[in-house]
């Protein structure tokens, strides 16, 4: 009972803060809500028995990325924070599109039976993850290295060009 309650707390937190993050006017508050969402997701990971992912989620997303976003907002010139006026028709159109997609997926998921397996908690240890990454999944693991290098070089190139351009 307590377990379900805590799970609901985390799941509800993830959804609630995510909604707040996209609806709040103040960008700084929205960023804080995003961080809270990431924290709640870490909680869900613990419930799914992957402590490692939960720790990584806390360190990387909640810690590093959350702070990075908040820094970016604090450093950006206020002119960039201008609030756009929202058009009502666009809002309803988006609501209808998202709502119908949600309805279709919900109806499908509700009527189909996905087989579930009971997995013992704590089964996925860090060493198992590491072994998998360097054996069965070594290829995607290596390609991720290329992706990260590419992203870093790309970020440098664009940041560099931008700084020169504003002189």
């Amino acid at each position: 009972m307590i377990k379900e309650l805590i799970f609901l707390l985390f799941a509800g937190g993830a959804v609630g803060f995510a909604l707040l993050a996209v609806s709040l006017k103040n960008l700084f508050h929205a960023a804080l809500c995003l961080a809270a969402t990431l924290f709640s997701v870490a909680g869900i990971f613990i419930f799914l028995g992957s402590e490692f992912l939960a720790v990584i989620q806390l360190l990387v997303y909640f810690g590093a990325i959350g702070i990075l976003i908040i820094f970016t907002i604090m450093i950006s010139p206020p002119a960039l924070l201008k609030n756009e006026t929202k058009s009502v028709s666009k809002f309803f159109f988006a609501l209808a599109a998202a709502g119908s997609l949600f309805f279709i997926l919900f109806a499908l998921l509700a009527q189909s039976t996905l087989e579930t397996e009971t997995v013992e908690l704590g089964l996925v240890s860090i060493s198992q993850l590491g072994t998998l990454l360097l054996t069965d999944f070594v290829f995607p693991f290596e390609v991720i290295a290329l992706v990260l290098l590419l992203a870093i070089v790309g970020a440098i190139i664009h940041a560099w060009g931008g700084a020169e351009g504003h002189e």
Partner: peptide, 18 residues
């Protein structure tokens, strides 16, 4: 395999973003 597919897709997409 889906994970490899996803990583390769990201490699090409990120290059295009840049």
């Amino acid at each position: 395999e889906f994970i490899t597919l996803f990583v390769a897709l990201e490699l090409s997409s990120i290059a295009l973003y840049i």
